[in-house]
Amino acid sequence: MSDTAVRLAGVTKTFGDHTAVSDFDLEIPRGTILGLLGPNGSGKTTTIRMMMAILLPDRGTVELLGAFPDFERRARVGYLPEERGVYEKMKVLEQLVFLGEIRGMERKIVRVRAMEWLERLDLGEWADKKVQALSKGMQQKVQFIGTVLHNPDLLILDEPFSGLDPINQEVLESIVLEERERGTTVLFSTHLMEQAERICERVCLISKSRKVLDGDLREIKRRERSGVVALEFEGDDGWLSRLGMTGVERVGYAHHLTLGPRTDGDRILAAAVAEGVSLRRFELLEPSLREIFVRHAGDAPSEPALRAAGGAR
């Protein structure tokens, strides 16, 4: 078994004269959670659909669990498409049993396991209701159960949290983290930077059909440190100007100090101690994902951008 769950190399996909994904490389090590980030229309869904061999790339290669995404590999994946497709007329439990069965699970076993999942996601009493009787959010939870039901080696989730209330988002987040504990590789796409920041180990930023950046989130942040120290203290701030700091900015109770060659963190700390102010906070600020994204892509993913870029998949 290869250590890479997903590998894309030089993948390009065009629809007519619109390039949806351009020369895309990505490697996802096994057992990690990767967030695929970018505004809507940036090519996330197209990339995911190529991973599932729903679309074939014009150029480049796609590998899933070490080989071409054939049926054997795909059966080991839990896939949640962007469009929430369900058999509306089917009963909730039966739908889940069907999804388990086509992945080769024993009918009796799926039934029990599906019921456990339904109970866990507060859908127990809906098991015998038709799917169409459920709200959109509930249907999404049912679909989510369908993706984890067969204990897949890899979860590919396209915008799994969109449209859910915060409580349910948290429930799903905790399940994703749990799956990760089990050793499952998780890839999910989102345009919500803050959420990705909360649960991802690795991120891959896409903008305008190109990869901007990818790698370990902590490493990226370290690399992208802006050289700003946030300082909170009680007492007079006159000593700061005596230090010869140039960029001092007040943000709430804190002072944000931009470090220079002659003013590193240690010097500031020493000066503060010497001055006798009582320190409340001293922190090397790391940029948020949003800031990193803006720095690299030039514009922030925002809801209006989402609408403008709209339909392209």
Binding site: Y79, R84, V86, I102, G104
Partner: peptide, 16 residues
């Protein structure tokens, strides 16, 4: 119906 509501994308990930 299956194609239109995209269930087929999930089903086809497991069934030829």
């Amino acid at each position: 119906d299956e194609k239109r509501n995209r269930v087929v994308e999930v089903v086809i990930s497991a069934v030829t």
